[in-house]
């Protein structure tokens, strides 16, 4: 890639510890429609907050409560008739609320899914609609979304009330280019990052709505997605994924990358490339980063997990029962990995 990259030793596939991922549970969704996403959330059941799993098929979102011995029971289902579900939008710090993005190729609606105060029936509330480009749930019961393009682009923060309805809305200054993704800055609740179509990273002050800086990153990889960021010693460290990265003869396939940016000067450089082990092929399809662990579904149908501190891939999960993996999420309620297949099977792994 570039001379700025730290050289790393990539372990071979057969040296990875196959015991790193341990299957603890499996959920079978019998709805029959295509499975699109999974997430974990807290839900109050019989007076206790419980770590639940949310599964999304094209037209049904279901909430599963834990039973004994890693079994799960479906307790609520929300149905959609016109527009299919694209993704679950996990909102940290909320209980009894799930957000979903609906649309065909692009997001057309964001809805909050709740249940009635007596817990007997499901409810849904339309939060926003239009040509929505990107959405992310943020700490302190907030949700950020961008809609429109270029001159009419709107970036909005919505804060939820206890009952899940939208309590207040605030606009952020839009950059003059389309936003692709958002990412929080760990430990800085008033800072928000966005990646744009022009390969820039923008940073906002969420308290004032100011657009603080536009920082251009290396053009080696197009359409990079920002997953996580943290600030240390005056520098901003950002974990990106590279869906369009080509295989590099020396390093293999770069799936994630850690870059460092000086927000004062907007100068940046690559710190680490996270590549596939030798003998493994595939590009980034879909993935999730939590703390210092990154997981990705590859175009080969395999899931790969990296320890971002160690710098190399620590686990590979080949397709199970002949079915490729189609999505992967870290559970927000514990240290489990949730892996899903298109036919509705969800597997829970302890990492």
């Amino acid at each position: 890639h570039s001379a700025e990259q730290t050289e790393i030793e990539v372990p071979a596939w057969d040296s990875l510890n196959p015991g790193t991922l341990q299957l603890v549970s499996k959920l079978k969704n019998p709805s029959g429609s295509c499975s699109v996403d999974v997430s974990a959330t807290w839900w109050e059941i019989a007076g206790f907050k419980q770590p639940c799993i949310v599964t999304a098929c094209e037209y049904v979102v279901s909430l599963w409560k834990p039973l004994d011995a890693w079994q799960w029971e479906k307790i609520y289902s929300w149905h959609f008739t016109e527009v299919p579900v694209l993704q679950i939008v996990a909102v940290p710090d909320v209980c009894n609320l799930v957000c979903v993005a609906l649309g065909n190729l692009e997001i057309r609606e964001i809805r909050a899914l709740l249940c009635s105060p007596d817990g007997k029936s499901e409810k849904q509330v339309l939060l926003s609609s239009g040509n929505i480009k990107a959405v992310l749930g943020l700490a302190k019961r907030r949700l950020v979304s961008s809609s429109g393009t270029l001159c009419d682009q709107q970036v909005e923060i919505m804060t939820f009330a206890e009952d899940g309805g939208s309590k207040e809305k605030q606009l952020l200054m839009p950059p003059e280019e389309t936003i692709l993704t958002f990412a929080e800055v760990q430990g800085m609740q008033e800072a928000l990052l966005g990646t744009t179509i022009m390969n820039n990273i923008v940073i906002w002050n969420l308290k004032t709505g100011q657009l603080l800086k536009k920082m251009h990153i290396d053009d080696s990889y197009q359409a990079s997605v920002c997953h996580k960021a943290y600030s240390e010693m005056g520098l901003l460290f950002v974990v990106l994924s590279h869906p369009c990265a080509k295989e590099n003869e020396l390093l293999g396939s770069p799936v994630f990358q850690l870059i460092v940016i000086n927000p004062k000067t907007a100068l940046s450089m690559g710190v680490m490339l996270y590549c596939l082990p030798h003998g493994q092929a595939g590009r980034f399809l879909e993935g999730d980063v939590k703390d210092h662990f990154a997981a990705a579904v590859l175009t080969s149908g395999t899931i790969a997990v990296w320890d971002l501190l160690l710098g190399h891939c620590t686990a590979l999960l080949p397709p199970v029962s002949g079915q490729n993996w189609s999505f992967v999420k870290w559970s927000g309620t514990d240290s489990h990995l949730l892996a899903g297949q298109k036919d509705g099977n969800i597997f829970v792994y302890r990492y």
Binding site: T6, G234, N262, P263, K264, L267, S268, M269, V271
Partner: peptide
């Protein structure tokens, strides 16, 4: 990588950028 290539670093970058950026 070499930190010097990134230019002068400020520990208070967020506050400084907030005071410099248009409201």
């Amino acid at each position: 990588c070499n930190k010097a290539d990134l230019g002068p670093i400020s520990l208070n970058w967020f506050e400084e950028l907030s005071s410099e950026a248009p409201p």
